[in-house]
């Protein structure tokens, strides 16, 4: 019960002594990376983490999990904008011709959300068309949308195939607009 009992803890590299205790449990480990994987802290602030807890182990936490959320009825029955016929039918976008006006009412971010969330559908096509109207262009290889930075005039290349300038990109991973200097090839955008 005295100080000598602690010697195996102080000499974790000693072959004989280190066999006695499992140091990952006695001495433990630097918890920084474990805390980071939990989201403690996040954005330098303390947030609740158990509501979005994916799994007890970082190795099995490779995808986000849907937390409890609540949609008030007033969000699901917005008349005239989202409804096609009756109050009870959820909104749907089934016609490229007929639904363009409804899509024009959405904010940029709603359009991005719908574009990325519903591939191979009418709504993906509709949001593509609407974003183009708003001077966004879709980059085929980056699979991201960009628009010209209004503060800067780009410099066109001599061969006329590209331009270098400042653009605002929408990053779907971080869900935010960000400004970047970029060499834009005209055949890469649509």
């Amino acid at each position: 019960f005295g100080l000598e009992a602690l010697v195996p803890l102080i000499k974790p590299d000693d072959k004989e002594l280190s066999k006695i205790y499992d140091h990952s449990m006695t001495l433990g480990a630097d918890l920084t990376s474990m805390l980071h994987s939990l989201g403690i802290p996040r954005d330098s602030k303390r947030h609740r983490v158990l509501d979005t807890f994916q799994s007890p182990w970082a190795e099995t936490s490779r995808s986000e999990v849907e937390p409890t959320f609540f949609i008030p009825d007033s969000f699901t029955h917005i008349p005239d904008v989202l409804q096609s016929n009756t109050k009870d039918t959820p909104p749907s976008f089934d016609s490229v011709q007929k639904d363009q006006q409804r899509v024009a009412l959405f904010q940029d971010e709603t359009l991005f959300y719908l574009f990325y969330k519903h591939p191979g559908t009418v709504i993906q096509e509709l949001t593509y068309l609407e974003l183009r109207k708003r001077n966004w262009r879709y980059h085929k290889t980056l699979k991201a949308w960009l628009t010209k930075d209004p503060m800067m005039e780009p410099v066109v290349s001599n061969d006329g195939l590209s331009e270098r300038g400042s653009y605002v990109f929408f990053d779907p991973q971080r869900w935010e607009k960000c400004q970047r200097e970029f060499l834009l090839f005209y055949n890469a955008i649509m």
Binding site: S24, L31, M34, I40, R48, V49, P56, W57
Partner: peptide, 18 residues
């Protein structure tokens, strides 16, 4: 060892939230 790791991670979550 894996059970232990999961345990300490859960306790850290509780320590943060409640």
């Amino acid at each position: 060892s894996v059970v232990y790791k999961g345990t300490i991670r859960i306790i850290l979550g509780i320590s943060n939230d409640v």
